[in-house]
């Protein structure tokens, strides 16, 4: 494996670590940005600078969609709803927390992604191993995030990362002619972000200001 391919793989591994570790209200935007940074160099290797448009635009629109949907939901006078940031079920007490478990799972995915990049040929031989690795490992990070998700936010993060990774893999095997399909798929990232943002805004709308202030005070303690 050449130095360039090795660098692509290292960037993908760092991106995957960020994807599985990030939590909170900005998780979708940060994880999508990490996925775009992990995938963009690979997309440039295959399709030139235009190849990076899909992951970068997908990630940017995901972050924007979260914000806009939350603002829109906060303005509408309706009932309070599901909070996507609250775990659906109470996590059991354990030695390792959810981030540790996700980290261990994505580490287990490393040999799988490596095997696929060495044995499964998407495009032009050995020169594309790093490209395949980046797409597959980012996809594995998204799958890990979804499979071990505890909140709606986790599921949305996983969905947006999977969409970006699959889009880059699709353009890698099909070339620029398939960018329309990949663009449509990248639309899943802002869609999942919009759903999570909408739910967050709707939930916050239902909290009376005095209770929100109490919660903030307790959080500071």
């Amino acid at each position: 494996m050449s130095n360039g391919q090795f660098l692509l793989s290292v960037i993908a591994v760092i991106g995957a670590i960020v994807i599985v570790l990030v939590e909170g209200r900005r998780a979708i935007g940060v994880a999508s940005a990490a996925a775009a940074i992990a995938l963009a160099p690979s997309a440039i290797v295959v399709g030139g600078p235009r190849g990076a448009v899909i992951p970068v635009l997908g990630a940017a629109s995901a972050g924007l969609a979260v914000r806009l949907a939350r603002l829109a939901a906060e303005r509408l006078p309706r009932v309070s709803g599901l909070d996507p940031l609250v775990p659906v079920i109470a996590p059991p007490d354990g030695l390792f927390g959810p981030r540790s478990v996700r980290m261990a799972a994505v580490a287990c995915g490393l040999p799988a992604a490596s095997w696929i990049s060495f044995n499964v040929q998407l495009v032009g031989g050995a020169s594309a191993r790093g490209v395949v690795f980046a797409a597959v490992y980012t996809w594995i990070a998204g799958i890990t995030r979804t499979l071990l998700g505890r909140t709606i936010e986790d599921l949305a993060v996983g969905t947006s990362v999977i969409a970006l990774a699959a889009g880059v893999a699709w353009t890698t095997q099909g070339g620029p002619a398939t960018s329309t399909d990949a663009g449509a798929l990248a639309g899943l990232a802002p869609l999942s972000g919009a759903v999570a943002g909408w739910l967050t805004g709707r939930h916050r709308r239902g909290v009376p200001p005095e209770r929100a202030a109490e919660g903030a005070t307790e959080g500071m303690r």
Binding site: A135, W139, I143, G158, I162, A169, Q173, L185
Partner: peptide
């Protein structure tokens, strides 16, 4: 996610 990932392969 599996359907999306497999599509490329």
């Amino acid at each position: 996610g599996c359907l999306l990932g497999a599509a490329a392969f």
